[in-house]
């Protein structure tokens, strides 16, 4: 009893310290970049950061679900490409905006479903499957665009990526809503329970009469859909879709989730951790950009962060 409550307190302590650490890092970033890059601490830039992280933020939600369930999706970057290009091409062809958006989301659902079926039904490791589909879906992007950027959308479409409500960018508001919704799903619905159960002990979950393979398919399909939503905001913000759209996103998001305390082996971690991780990475990229450091330098820092984040959890 005593041992229990003390270990409980200890757990709380660890949890607290991780989040304080994460917030500390964010504060440090603000200090550092505020000092080094004068433009950094302006309202315009802060909103800019939020706008920039909104897309990877949206994808980080289903990816956190997948990680919590002990899986992984390395193909999200390519799915961004496929969905964004699908949507962009329909827009360019003069189709109604709503139809184009729905088509993009449908494309995401289909490719996510494909991932899910291969992982859930054929029982091949998710990591390996999504490496394969990553390459294949990216190839699809090149085939669809023939290597040329897809641009020239109706004006109304740009509202998504550029417009704001009460001073807040729409994409940021959507991200906020998604996070609240996802938190609710994870904490308050049976589906959230199933995710955690599978991530902690897939066997016991199956022995409890839960159709584990269906949950997996659903998770991957949801991942496809959320990724598609993100891709639509992205092409609206960039006002074009290239074949390389979204490439490398998976690293940012997985790193963010792992920094945020999601266990690489599944089963434990909190959504808010991922969110802080996304903020840290978003601010880092923005700040380094303002300082004129190329994207490629940033990836050194990300790589090291990833190793540190995972290694530390193992002790």
């Amino acid at each position: 009893m005593v041992q229990q409550s003390s270990s409980h307190a200890k757990m709380l302590c660890v949890l607290k310290s991780r989040y304080t650490l994460l917030i500390g890092i964010i504060a440090l970033e603000f200090l550092l970049f505020g000092f080094l890059a004068p433009y950094f601490l302006t309202l315009g830039n802060i909103l800019n950061i939020l706008r920039q992280i909104s897309e990877i933020g949206m994808i980080s939600i289903p990816l956190t679900f997948l990680l919590l369930s002990g899986h992984m999706d390395l193909s999200v970057g390519s799915i961004v490409g496929v969905c964004g290009i699908t949507c962009g091409m329909l827009l360019r062809a003069g189709q109604p905006v709503v139809l184009a958006i729905l088509a993009g989301i449908a494309a995401g659902a289909v490719v996510g479903f494909i991932n899910g079926v291969i992982v859930g039904k054929l029982k091949i490791q998710a990591v390996v499957v999504t490496i394969g589909t990553q390459v294949m879906f990216r190839g699809l992007c090149y085939i669809m665009t023939s290597g040329r950027a897809v641009s020239g959308y109706p004006l109304s479409f740009y509202v998504l990526g550029g417009g704001d409500i009460l001073g807040l960018p729409i994409s940021v508001l959507v991200l906020g809503l998604c996070y609240v919704g996802a938190w609710f799903v994870l904490e308050r619905t049976y589906f959230g329970r199933y995710i955690l159960a599978i991530g902690n002990n897939q066997n016991t979950t199956r022995y409890s009469g839960i159709r584990v393979d269906r949950v997996k398919i659903l998770l991957f399909t949801f991942c496809g859909i959320m990724t598609a939503v993100a891709s639509i905001f992205l092409i609206s913000r960039l006002s074009s879709a290239e074949a390389t759209l979204g490439s490398g996103y998976e690293l940012d998001i997985i790193t963010a989730a792992l920094i945020g305390g999601i266990d690489i082996n599944g089963g434990s971690g909190k959504l808010q951790g991922t969110f802080l991780g996304i903020l840290i990475i978003g601010i880092l990229r923005n700040g380094l950009n303002l300082m004129g450091l190329s994207v490629i330098y940033q990836s050194i820092i990300l790589g090291v962060l990833l190793l540190v984040a995972v290694a530390k959890r193992k002790g």
């Binding site: 329970r193 955690l196 159960a197 902690n200 002990n201 066997n203 016991t204 979950t205 022995y207 089963g267 434990s268």
Partner: peptide
């Protein structure tokens, strides 16, 4: 341990 409980999670869960 492998089939009955999920030991990292709560009694309620």
């Amino acid at each position: 341990h492998r089939q009955g409980i999920i030991r990292q999670l709560s009694i309620r869960f």
